[in-house]
């Protein structure tokens, strides 16, 4: 059984590897890259929202922190964005702890509101802070040719595709490891019933911070990846409130509290969003967003536990 399961994953990974070679169309590859990025973001959110029961609606703040940290380190110090990516993750952990510690006693809606407020504060701060480009944003100097050091590839989307795929699989692997560990066991208890977990002696504040740190780190890494992919960042693109909402939507749509649910969510919703925008986005009528919203609404009514509920027998 276990062997069959592993084989199934190997086949899926091989398919993902050959996909961009078979479908060598830039737009298709772009959509796939976005699937990986959003898959990574939704999986990161899954640790806090899906397993630990902390509904964060402020993940855009960590995404932006990652994007700005690696871009600034590259622009100011010439540091490779690969290191910048790790640095961004660490800064996001520090920011996550800074917001998570004072909010360690907030529950449910109150925690969600605090995260929204935090993301707004970061957005306003960056919009008005000239060192980080304020409202104009940042655009790193373009490398003369494709460069691994500068993390810039303009001749093909393939490097971004494989890096994105690797980062998403790495996130899934780490989250899976954490959730199956003793720490994950306590995180799940926290998500089920925080008060009962506390009455058993589970250190709520500690596990909340662990959960927030994991999610913040990978969200920021995705932010750095995005910054290198588009090579231009500003507050509306990396700190937008809608981004936070999208992350939650994708995770919930796929099935939060399961390892593969958020990835399923990204696999379905991201192409839907991208294609709807490509087909109807130019009409100026908002039809693409209406279609996107309608699908989510209908699906949520009939499958409230997400896409994974098709595969889970109860």
């Amino acid at each position: 059984m276990e062997k069959g399961k592993h084989l199934y994953y190997v086949v899926l990974v091989v398919l993902a590897i050959v996909f961009p070679i078979v479908f060598n169309v830039p737009f298709v590859q772009h959509v796939a890259i976005m699937v990986f990025m959003y898959g990574m973001l939704a999986e990161s959110w899954n640790v806090i929202g899906g397993y630990s029961g902390l509904f964060s609606f402020g993940q855009a703040a960590f995404f932006g922190i990652g994007a700005y940290t690696s871009t600034l380190l590259y622009m100011q110090l010439g540091l490779t964005p690969w290191i910048g990516m790790i640095a961004g993750g660490l800064v996001a952990i520090a920011a996550g702890i800074a917001i998570g510690y004072p909010c360690s006693k907030l529950k449910g809606h109150y925690f969600a509101i605090a995260t929204i407020a935090f993301a707004w504060i970061i957005n306003i701060l960056f919009t008005n802070w000239s060192f980080v480009g304020a409202a104009t944003g940042l655009s790193p100097e373009l490398a003369p040719a494709d460069s691994w050091y500068a993390f810039q590839f303009r001749s093909s989307k393939l490097p971004y595709y494989y890096i994105g795929l690797f980062l998403m699989l790495l996130t899934v692997y780490v989250v899976n490891k954490v959730i199956k560990s003793k720490t994950g066991f306590y995180l799940r208890a926290l998500g089920e019933n925080e008060e009962v977990a506390a009455s058993l002696g589970v250190n709520i504040a500690k596990y909340r911070l662990i959960s927030i740190s994991i999610a913040s780190f990978f969200t920021a890494v995705a932010g750095s990846f995005y910054a290198q992919y588009v090579l231009y960042i500003d507050p509306p693109s990396v700190l937008a409130h809608f981004l936070s909402v999208e992350i939650v939507l994708i995770a919930m749509f796929g099935g939060s509290g399961t390892i593969w649910g958020p990835i399923w969510g990204a696999l379905i919703l991201v192409p839907l969003s991208q294609y709807a925008r490509a087909i109807w986005g130019g009409m100026g009528s908002g039809l693409d967003i209406m279609v996107y919203g309608f699908v989510i609404m209908v699906f949520s009514i009939f499958r409230p536990r997400g896409v994974v509920s098709f595969f889970i027998r109860k």
Partner: peptide, 22 residues
């Protein structure tokens, strides 16, 4: 709370609250 429980105080909450999914 977790330090008090380490010292041996244990509370069984009302309503048979268990972790249903576990």
């Amino acid at each position: 709370p977790h330090e008090r429980i380490e010292r041996g105080i244990v509370l069984v909450p009302e309503g048979g609250k268990v972790f249903g999914r576990l």
